[in-house]
């Protein structure tokens, strides 16, 4: 039981994989959330149906099932994925579906008068969204996005089950090599908690940044 430093290094390597997964997964989730969220309130019915189907499917099944499906079933149709790609894809698509509902809700929460005022001053659809709707909708989305990002961080632990060497996987390695259970699991629990605290701290700063100048409006 002497080689603590070595085992700690192993866990920290895993922590780096977890951080990478969280960042890439969040980036994908953000893009997908806006695409599907805007798709759900689109004027074109097929786009609306497609977005709804995507959202219901990914919210209706668990991340675990989606990950296994992407990792084991997709390759049989010809799309070969590394565990990392499969992990990022499952995390991004899963959390993106939850995010899409947030985007939709926030945009619908912007008062109707704002939409009508935009039409009255003859803004194009893109200008309306970019300069009037989103600046007001974004502050409404952020608190829930923060929760979603923490859910995504927590979900990264599941990728250890498709043999991606994230923090949870490395803790299992340490457990099987040393037979010690308390040290690896307590270490990663503390690390996960530190990461989720960092996310909520960072999100609060971003929130302060985007709500600046909105005090008089709301």
């Amino acid at each position: 039981m002497g080689d603590w430093a070595g085992y700690l290094t192993l866990i920290l390597q895993g922590a780096w994989v977890t951080v990478k997964l969280t960042l890439m997964g969040s980036a994908l989730a953000l893009v997908v959330a806006f695409l599907a969220g805007l798709g759900r309130i689109s004027h074109h019915a097929p786009i609306r149906w497609l977005s709804t189907a995507y959202i219901e499917f990914f919210r209706g099944t668990s991340i675990f099932v989606q990950l296994f499906w992407i990792y084991f079933v997709l390759p049989m149709t010809g799309a070969e994925l590394t565990p990392m790609q499969a992990g990022v894809m499952a995390l991004g698509l899963n959390v993106g579906a939850y995010g899409a509902e947030v985007v939709r809700g926030a945009i619908l929460a912007v008062p109707r008068g704002q939409h009508e005022a935009c039409i009255a001053v003859n803004l194009t659809r893109w200008q309306r969204l970019r300069h009037v709707i989103l600046p007001q909708a974004l502050p409404l989305m952020l608190p829930t996005f923060c929760n979603n990002a923490i859910e995504l961080l927590k979900a990264t632990s599941v990728v250890s089950l498709i043999s991606l060497s994230d923090m949870t996987f490395q803790a299992q390695v340490v457990r099987s090599q040393t037979g010690s259970t308390l040290m690896p699991f307590v270490t990663i629990l503390v690390l996960y908690f530190a990461m989720s605290s960092a996310i909520s701290f960072g999100m609060r700063r971003i929130e302060r940044r985007v709500t600046r100048g909105l005090d008089g409006v709301r």
Binding site: I150, L153, K154, A155, T156, S157, V158, S160, T168, A171, Q172, R175, T181, L182, F185, V186, I188, L189, Y192, F193, S196, S197
Partner: peptide, 22 residues
């Protein structure tokens, strides 16, 4: 806050592997 900020999977491992040692 701690339980909410850490993954369920790791908590399950903790209960399943660490508690027997204790």
């Amino acid at each position: 806050e701690f339980i909410r900020g850490t993954p369920l999977l790791v908590q399950l491992y903790f209960i399943f592997y660490v508690l027997p040692d204790l």
